[in-house]
């Protein structure tokens, strides 16, 4: 079988296996879906009245940030899933099979998109309940969700690489928190980046998580009229800047992860 076809077939087999596992262990899915609901409710009701968004409502502002944060956190599942496969020894079986060398990773990152689709859907419903609204057409809204998913997919390759580097699920959960918390908090996710002090503000403005958040807000129409134009290029061109990151992350981390998979004992 030729290379690309084999990659597609093998990745499909692996993705199917991962989907079966999602169905067999629904507890995981429940937690995946409950935590974004919790975040929406906590931020909406705890910070909702103390953070002022000029000309708009904090809840409208918040949802784009929660979306971005949740899909980035969702990438942890990719790393945890791979670390688990290694701990259980099934990775050795895969590595001794005459299958495509990228399929375990391609299949894994593909099946993990399901988590993100479901959590975006749940969050959107929760958001609608607490007062978030789409102010744009269906195409733009769809583009917003697609962009979030694309970013999530790219980020899951980062965690795939990390998952192959670390020895256990526990380590990856802790390690990813150390990266993902700063990345999603030093951003415009929960407060406008202009409110942050010096260095943090610069980080936030160039942080791709800010760009994907900004892009989602634009595409959902959650930026109140009269809000001043952002002062930096990444936020002025949030969609383009996000797409650049998506391509760059995959271009760097997919080969790194596949190479690691080939060599890992």
């Amino acid at each position: 079988m030729k290379g690309l076809l084999r990659l597609a077939v093998d990745s499909h087999v692996i993705a199917k296996r991962n989907v079966i596992k999602i169905k067999r262990v629904p507890e995981v899915l429940v937690f995946v879906l409950i935590s974004p609901i919790m975040f929406v409710l906590l931020f909406a009701y705890v910070f909702g009245d103390s953070i002022a968004i000029p000309g708009g409502s904090y809840r409208e502002f918040l949802i784009g940030g929660i979306f971005a944060q949740t899909v980035v956190f969702g990438a942890t599942f990719t790393g945890a899933g791979l670390a688990d496969d290694m701990q259980k020894g099934i990775m050795s079986r895969f590595r001794a099979l005459p299958m495509s060398r990228a399929a375990v990773l391609v299949g894994r990152t593909a099946s993990d998109v399901i988590y993100n689709v479901l959590s975006l859907a749940i969050m959107a419903i929760t958001g609608l309940i607490v007062g978030w609204r789409l102010h744009t057409g269906p195409l733009e809204a769809a583009a917003g969700f697609a962009l979030l998913l694309a970013f999530a997919y790219a980020f899951s390759w980062v965690m795939a690489y990390v998952g192959l580097l670390v020895p256990s699920v526990e380590v990856i959960n802790n390690a990813s928190f150390m990266v993902i918390f700063p990345l999603t908090f030093i951003a415009n996710t929960f407060v406008p980046s202009e409110n942050l002090p010096g260095v943090l503000r610069a980080f936030a403005e160039w942080n791709p998580v800010s760009a994907v958040t900004q892009a989602a807000r634009e595409l959902f129409g959650n930026i109140p009229p009269g809000t001043p134009e952002p002062s930096v290029w990444p936020l002025q061109n949030a969609v383009a800047y996000t797409l650049i990151w998506v391509v760059a992350i995959i271009a760097v981390f997919a080969p790194l992860a596949v190479n690691r998979y080939r060599r890992r004992p």
Partner: peptide, 18 residues
Amino acid sequence: DEHLTGFENLDMIGRLYH
């Protein structure tokens, strides 16, 4: 894979052997 059935495990391996 402990979450798959015996059949699903062997079927998956067979598919991966093409």
